[in-house]
């Protein structure tokens, strides 16, 4: 009985652990090995020599790599606060008040962007922001009364704005719905009692709702940060990183070096390992913070 109790959890855990180890860990070990070697996929005649840390040095000296990292952090730093602010606003609008049916519709509609295949989001962006016949430029023309013909995808800064806009469109609903579920947890009595004290929106937000919103905010921060650092699909179809490299986020850059052009697996693996270190540190910090003591 005693031994059985000790063995049971391992029987339950073993299949999942084994599978994840084969598909998740073994490749990482191999990637670490590749990152220490010359490995040019497109030139199989060049031997896979051990080169110590030279691939890592190449990466550290590579301006384009740091450019892509900086761009990704900028993308994160701009889009996440906007998603949070807009999401909170939308959650407030949806929470209570008049227009019950409209609120119901809007709440259901918010699910649509979330379920949208990111590849398709990118394609829709490409259609809507087309300089020539896109509906966005049409709307701008109607508002300004002149032909603006903004070249959304041809201008480096505007292309970056475009990927931000599509990111915000797709993921603000995520923040809105999570905030909404946080707000639903605010006890009605507490809030009603507070209305007698103050009518200020901000005071309500700070003193009554905030405690219930904090876990929601943490969840949004963590999950969106993780997903934005993984962003590939939507940008791949929307701009493919262009024009120039103005929308080339880190994952697009790494795949371009490893699998889409340079085929330098050694350098790309070094980049990937550095990314892994970065995300592991971030996620460890995040999860520890989110689940403080929860699983001890």
């Amino acid at each position: 009985m005693h031994t059985q109790r000790r063995i049971t959890p391992f029987v339950f855990l073993a299949p999942a652990v084994l599978v994840l180890a084969v598909v998740g860990i073994y490749p990482l070990i191999f990637a670490a090995w590749v990152s220490l070697h010359t490995y040019l996929l497109a030139q199989p005649n060049i031997p896979h020599d051990f080169v110590w840390l030279s691939n890592y040095l190449t990466v550290l000296k590579d301006g384009s790599f740091w450019g892509a990292i900086g761009r990704t952090l900028l993308y994160l730093g701009v889009s996440l606060p906007i998603q949070i602010a807009l999401g909170l606003g939308i959650a407030m609008l949806l929470r209570r008040g008049p227009w019950g049916r409209l609120r119901g519709f809007a709440r259901v509609a918010l699910v649509i962007p979330l379920a949208m295949t990111p590849v398709v989001t990118g394609l829709i962006g490409r259609l809507m922001f087309n300089q020539d016949f896109g509906v966005v430029n049409f709307a701008l023309n109607s508002v300004t009364g002149q032909t603006v013909g903004t070249e959304w995808l041809g201008n480096p800064n505007l292309a970056f704005v475009t990927i931000l806009l599509m990111e915000i469109w797709q993921w603000t609903p995520f923040a809105a719905l999570i905030f909404l579920s946080g707000l639903t947890a605010v006890p009605v009595e507490v809030e009603e009692a507070a209305t007698l004290e103050t009518r200020s929106f901000w005071a309500m937000l700070r003193h009554i709702q905030l405690p219930f919103l904090l876990p929601a905010l943490t969840a949004i921060l963590i999950l969106r940060t993780a997903d934005i650092l993984k962003q590939f699909d939507m940008v791949y179809t929307l701009t493919s990183g262009g024009p120039g490299s103005s929308t080339e986020l880190i994952n697009l850059y790494i795949t371009r070096i490893g699998l889409r052009g340079a085929f330098d697996q050694g350098v790309a693996s070094a980049q990937a390992i550095l990314m892994l270190v970065l995300t592991t540190v971030l996620s460890r910090m995040y999860i520890r913070y989110l689940y403080r003591g929860d699983n001890a």
């Binding site: 024009p243 120039g244 490299s245 103005s246 052009g261 085929f263």
Partner: peptide, 16 residues
């Protein structure tokens, strides 16, 4: 093909 990537990246940067 490897060089082309580099030319393309920096060539567009020059144009811009």
């Amino acid at each position: 093909p490897q060089i082309s990537q580099i030319v393309a990246e920096n060539g567009t940067k020059i144009m811009l």
